[in-house]
Simulated assay, not measured.
Amino acid sequence: MKAQRKDMCTQLLECYNSDGEAFLQRIRTGDESWVHHYDPEGKPQLMEYRHKTSPSPRKFTAVTSAKKFLFTLFWDMEGVVHIEFLEQGQTVNSEQYISTLRALKLRFRRVWCDKDSILQHNNAHPHTSRQTQDALRQLELTTLPHPAYSSGLAPLTIICFPNSRST
């Protein structure tokens, strides 16, 4: 595994050494993440004006709603390139990911005139399945090698929530 990782790093360094900044500008990174939606429940009385001596209104509480959904985000050096929200209860499988790749390829054609983009995503099963690999070849999308157990190469949390600190 260490040799494989070293070979991949060497290959990427060679690409950077030969193309420089242009190599980095071609990379489009993608990842999925869950979004939790909270609906605060409150009463209209909380919006009413009250005198200082009036009893304090009951405070609303944030109640976890049943809304939790998955989104897929692709970004590059400039920012967000493409985003898709999945319907509640839907997860990413090969078929869904291929649909996302097709939409992404159309986006590449519209925005970059089909410039030679390089796709970087992790090695989750929907990204590495035979169906997905066939679709990547059909769509003529080049991918960066991604060594096993390297989820840190696609830091979606940092892109979406840059001010959050992990402890």
Rank of each mutant, 00 (worst) to 15 (best):
N123E: 03
V92I: 06
T91Q: 00
R109A: 01
F85H: 00
F69Q: 04
H36M: 00
V81M: 11
E48V: 11
V80E: 02
Q96F: 09
M77Q: 12
L46E: 13
I27S: 12
E14A: 05
W34H: 05
A135L: 03
R102V: 06
K67V: 11
G20R: 03
Y38Q: 09
L144C: 06
L13G: 10
T64W: 14
A103R: 06
Y97N: 08
A62S: 15
E140L: 00
D39C: 00
T61V: 15
H82Q: 03
D134R: 09
T29D: 02
C9I: 05
R26Q: 13
Q25W: 10
Q133H: 05
M8N: 09
N122D: 15
S56P: 02
R102M: 05
G30P: 07
Y97S: 12
L136I: 07
R102N: 04
R137G: 03
W112H: 14
A66I: 00
A135Q: 11
L13H: 05
L144R: 03
V35D: 08
S129Q: 11
Q45E: 15
F23K: 05
G42S: 11
T72K: 03
T100K: 01
P57V: 07
R109M: 03
S33F: 03
A22E: 15
M47N: 14
A124G: 13
